[in-house]
């Protein structure tokens, strides 16, 4: 949540380790599709790892492995015991273990993406687990969702509104969603995507690149003891 929050970033020292990016959001909004798109978009320029938090199966991990976007061994699945939000917020031990396992096996890495199991609008990642987080909504949940807010929508470093191609079919007004999101997010960025139609999410990938670059700049040097929050670039693209 970085640049717009004054509270200290109390994650363990980040020197030399990968940026940890949380991707959360309701079931079916396109989290896994976004993660796959990010792997495709960033896989050539960055060393990646992915941790999935499937609710009931290893479906997301399997999907990503089948998609061929990343070496299957770089994708780990974590079970969450019926409580996906617990695993990313209240008890992050298993996810941290998975992240560090990936870093030890394949490190050094630039970016480890932790995909939450689908959850509700209050689910956010602990700062002990994620250095930055993306919340993914889709238009088919209705254009009122951004106005309803909730910590995921209001405080995520980036809000992604996916499936814009469905807007006319479900009567969702993208302008309303953009306006409401801007109001509740106090200037934090929002990106509208149609991952299926566009075959990717280049805008989101660019944003992530910026965050990773900033992280590397701040934490890449062993003698650099700056320990502030991640500097998050702030594109406000309401295309």
């Amino acid at each position: 949540m970085g640049a717009h929050h004054n509270d200290r970033h109390d994650a363990p020292d980040g020197h030399g380790r990968a940026l940890r990016l949380g991707v959360g959001g309701p079931v079916g909004s396109g989290k896994t599709a976004l993660v796959a798109a990010l792997c495709r978009g960033l896989g050539r320029s960055m060393r990646l790892g992915v941790v999935t938090n499937d609710i009931y199966t290893t479906e997301d991990a399997d999907f990503l492995r089948r998609a061929g976007v990343l070496d299957p061994e770089r994708i780990l699945a974590v079970q969450t015991g019926c409580c996906p939000h617990t695993a990313i917020r209240d008890d992050i031990a298993a996810n941290l273990d998975a992240v560090e396992t990936l870093e030890e096996r394949f490190g050094p890495l630039d970016l480890v993406i932790v995909e939450s199991g689908g959850d509700n609008l209050t689910a956010t990642f602990s700062r002990g687990l994620a250095d930055a987080q993306i919340f993914v909504l889709d238009v088919s949940g209705g254009d009122k969702v951004p106005r309803k807010g909730g910590p995921g929508v209001t405080t995520a470093d980036l809000l992604v509104v996916n499936k814009t191609d469905l807007a006319p079919l479900v009567g969702a007004d993208l302008a309303v969603m953009a306006r409401d999101a801007e109001a509740v997010r106090e200037g934090r960025p929002v990106l509208f995507t149609s991952i299926r139609e566009d075959g990717g999410a280049p805008g989101v990938a660019d944003w992530v690149s910026g965050v990773v670059h900033s992280w590397r700049h701040r934490h890449g040097h062993i003698h650099d003891h700056a320990d502030g929050p991640v500097e998050i670039p702030m594109p406000l693209d309401l295309a």
Partner: peptide, 11 residues
Amino acid sequence: SRLPAGGHAHS
């Protein structure tokens, strides 16, 4: 049970 040590995911 709130000790954050991963126990919640074991049955």
